[in-house]
């Protein structure tokens, strides 16, 4: 057990039953509830990480409010979407992103104010 969605039936906020939705992440289906963010869907499904930093280190949600950019995903072809800020839409095709170099090119600096 791990992160999860509070069940609607037990929610003090008096939620009506969830409206289900389904998204895919790298082709794998994930079920969620309408209203959840993409990060919320993934966390509630027990997935804590979905992006890789430059060294390949796993990243998921950190700040949860759009400041840290750790949780970036590609949504329906749009790169660099903050998963914690984007509401999941039924049918969203999410692909994960990695900063790790595929090539032997060493991580470099890009200088200037670049």
């Amino acid at each position: 057990m791990s992160p999860r969605l509070v069940p609607a039936s037990a929610d003090a906020a008096g939620r009506r039953p969830d409206v289900p939705l389904r998204i895919t992440v790298d082709g794998v289906p994930y079920n969620g509830a309408a209203g959840q963010t993409i990060a919320g869907v993934l966390l509630a499904a027990g997935r804590r990480s979905w992006r890789n930093g430059p060294s390949g280190a796993p990243r998921g949600v950190f700040c949860g409010i759009g400041a840290c950019f750790d949780c970036l995903v590609t949504v329906n072809g749009d790169r660099d979407v903050r998963a914690c800020r984007r509401r999941a839409a039924d049918g969203d095709a999410v692909t994960t992103q990695s900063r790790a170099a595929d090539s032997a090119d060493p991580a470099g600096t890009d200088g200037g104010e670049r």
Binding site: A13, R15, R16
Partner: peptide
């Protein structure tokens, strides 16, 4: 809460 949650008692 998101509208889609249709929460009756969000103030809780």
């Amino acid at each position: 809460l998101p509208d889609a949650y249709r929460a009756a008692r969000p103030g809780r």
